[in-house]
Design a protein around this nucleic acid. Structure first.
Lengths: 350, 350
DNA sequence: TATTAGCACTCTAAGTCTTTAAGTGCTAAA
DNA sequence: TTTAGCACTTAAAGACTTAGAGTGCTAATA
């Protein structure tokens, strides 16, 4: 357990290091502390903090920098989220008050705000797709053998894709197939639908349609799209500022952002679903996979859309971030986002 | 005018510098030339080439590097495109033989191939939208006050967007409006359509529909999308390799890639439309705008889709590229792309 | 007992100096 | 016109020095 003064010292070393990115020496720190003690006293406490593994030195006679464990301790015991500045608040309100067409737009905008206000990189994910159901499926002929397939889910999300239809498949067949799909599968969870088009649906179609495979490929494609998570990444370019010329980790990250599965892995919380998932979690150092990211810090928060699942918003930045401000901000945006989405769904089925 | 030997020297300095990124000295060059001359002779020619502004020194006693003018001369007078290696050829053929759904996919794939084969960044643009006509407009109701608007053009491209429709607009009104649009505007160039919905169309709709503005906003939005160019950028990450830690130019470029207008400006050829536009053009140094890019080289080629306009493919890389190989490659992909798209359109209206 | 002044010690960063190797330009001879 | 020879230039790398920031320890102090 830390003495009060030791905690104060740790807290301030983290604060100063975040501002200057330079090791903090005892004399310098002396002038920054609210209490009056000599630099020797501070040195003694620093030595103890180092012994406990909470501080590091860059070389034997350098000032101290926070170690990963130091950040961990700070985050777990010392951090107090600060209120959002009125300036930030105004920006958030203003952005969320824009008129949106779709849920996805709101979620995407959250990533934009978050990255703009922090100068880091934000990642957001809409409410989870666990038990989303098929709400409807359409095919719209566009001429020139092109057909647009549209799938609507119970969560209000829409996926579409355009296909080049070979002449061998007749328009009537497609229409029949669509009718059967809607009759038989609407209202069922996407996962069930996905399973059934592998099992009994082909036979069912077979009775009325001459070649169901082509159609099922199309339907399957769009279904897959609708069933997979959609991540939004805001402020990609900010990475260039805080990844200190470490081109290799830059590459890792940027290619990570392109792959859904990798992003899902990155954001997956150790205790997702269990425990108090309302807490904002910070992971850094070896807590992060892949290990290429051990110089970064990832803050994740979930938000709860009443009766419509939970989503995730996250922020990726350097290990040394102004956590107080950032976490306050994240908390506000999470609440705001939950509120907007809950509103959205509440006047959904009228 | 250069002597034959001077040309040989310039050519080889460029070749060696491209491989090593190091200034080339007279002794080193002596061993690399196909002719037998002393280093003193080479030094004399080098001095003359420098006098002409074709070579530079990094310091008074260093070897020579090509100047921007040197590259210019090389590109204009000495360069001979080389044949595409059988390996590259195989990759190109294979990629183009995949089944595509849409024109846009083919154009996008070109950017991917080009960037993969070169390790640079590729930008492609579909055939130009000069006199594309409106082919059809649809509204598909998706439930929950959502409507998808779909616009098809005579070029076979499709744009769609989903809107939240306020209750004040009735479904019947929308249907009527769609019918009128299709009756009156199909077959007309997009530019004309865009103009008319500002002038006579509102009045026309007014007769049959109670509140045409909402509908026209929707239609206008999708129309705008369909009328603007769509660029594809492949191999963004390759920039990290050849932009030597120059974070500021990296930022310029990455934000450039996000803005349609900026990309259009970048690719706009000085003599676009006039002259022999079949030539592959290389721009470097001050020929490039914005000037932040003066350490890069941009190669642009147009491709001609029979009766369906021209498109552009481009490659952005460092000033010192293996131009012979690159230009050979670009030429092949341009032809291949033109062929595929011409094919595509040829069995379009049957 | 906790704090502090004092001081020897450590290490980096920045500057100076030296050396080496690669390269040039010029001169005079072939 | 080409070439051998040579004096000269420069960057890069290593050795050395110095200044400054910082530490850890000891002994005195409150």
């Amino acid at each position: 357990m830390l003495t009060q003064r030791q905690a104060l010292i740790l807290k301030n070393i983290i604060r100063i290091y975040t501002q200057t990115e330079q090791p903090v020496g005892s004399k310098h720190l002396m002038n920054e502390l609210p209490i009056q003690v000599s630099s020797a006293t501070i040195r003694n406490d620093m030595a103890k903090l180092e012994e406990m593994g909470l501080l590091d030195k860059t070389h034997s006679s350098s000032g101290r920098i926070p170690s990963i464990s130091g950040y961990r301790y700070y985050l777990d015991h010392l951090l107090e989220p600060s209120d959002v500045s009125s300036n930030d608040l105004a920006i958030i309100q203003q952005t969320f008050n824009q008129q949106y067409q779709m849920i996805d737009d709101i979620v995407e905008q959250s990533a934009t705000i978050l990255s703009t206000l922090t100068s880091y990189t934000a990642i957001t994910l809409g409410p989870d797709v666990q038990d989303i159901k098929l709400d409807g499926f359409r095919l719209v002929a566009l001429g020139n053998h092109q057909v647009m397939a549209i799938l609507v889910t119970s969560a209000g999300t829409v996926q579409n894709q355009i296909f080049q239809v070979p002449e061998s498949i007749s328009g009537e067949d497609l229409e029949k197939a669509v009718r059967i799909i809607n009759d038989q599968l609407v209202g069922q969870p996407l996962a069930v639908v996905a399973k059934r088009i592998q099992t009994d649906v082909p036979q069912m179609l077979m009775k009325y349609v001459s070649s169901p495979t082509g159609f099922l490929d199309i339907f399957g494609d769009v279904l897959k799209k609708a069933g997979s998570d959609h991540f939004y990444v805001g402020g990609r370019l900010n990475l260039l500022d805080f990844a200190n010329n470490d081109v290799s980790s830059l590459k890792t990250l940027y290619s990570l952002f392109e792959k859904n599965d990798d992003l899902a892995n990155l954001l997956r919380l150790p205790d997702f679903g269990t425990g108090d998932s309302d807490k904002i979690m910070v992971r850094l150092g070896d807590e992060l996979t892949p290990h290429t990211l051990r110089n970064y810090s990832l803050i994740t928060a979930t938000y709860d859309v009443h009766n419509h699942g939970r989503g995730v918003i996250a922020l990726l930045g350097p290990t040394s971030m102004p956590y107080s401000r950032i976490i306050g901000l994240l908390d506000l945006i999470r609440e705001e986002l939950a509120r907007r989405l809950t509103d959205y769904y509440s006047n959904f089925d009228d």
